[in-house]
């Protein structure tokens, strides 16, 4: 039996991208990271899709989530707390600025029922499938 995920979203170019990503991971450390900000984990089943993102220290009010068909866009801005003058910065590794990312989900979602929560720096978006995109069981009639 084929894995379920492959049946939903198999795209030849996705396979290439996946290969590219795996190769990048293999040669990790050379150059900038390949995954656009923010990094996302995407889950799906027959009812809904679930998208989680690591966004530590981002004001939820600065986040914009847009859904159109099967496209999910996340944009926002990360502002670090302003540090007063005369403060020596020994190490500055945390980034700041605007970001935007759009992902294509394997099915259309019902934009009215999308919900999102932000807790401990993790953004979780729940995207129920559009009624017409839900899998249907087909009855076979005897001839």
């Amino acid at each position: 039996m084929y894995p379920e995920t492959a049946a939903w979203s198999w795209e030849p170019f996705d396979e290439f991208r996946r290969l590219q990503r795996d190769m990048n991971r293999l040669f990790h450390g050379a150059g900038a990271s390949q995954e656009p900000f923010p990094a996302l984990n995407i889950y799906g089943n027959e009812e809904k899709a679930l998208v989680t993102a690591e966004l530590p220290g981002v004001d939820p009010k600065q986040l914009g989530i847009n859904v159109n068909g099967n496209r999910l866009s996340i944009e926002g801005e990360r502002k670090l707390d302003a540090v007063s003058d005369g403060v020596v910065c020994h190490r500055c590794e945390r980034g700041q600025g605007r970001f935007a990312r759009t992902v294509m989900l394997p099915f259309n979602v019902d934009a009215d029922k999308v919900s999102a929560s932000y807790r401990n720096g993790i953004l979780t978006i729940t995207l129920p499938r559009e009624e017409s995109a839900k899998p249907r069981k087909i009855q076979i009639t005897q001839g």
Binding site: E54, D81, G86, H90, R91, N120, G121
Partner: peptide
């Protein structure tokens, strides 16, 4: 984790990104 370290006259401040940690 990514870290910022600042030194003020009276204290050292460490800011550290730990998403998903309570």
């Amino acid at each position: 984790p990514d870290v910022d370290i600042y030194e003020k006259d009276d204290a050292i401040m460490v800011l550290c990104d730990m998403p998903g940690v309570d």
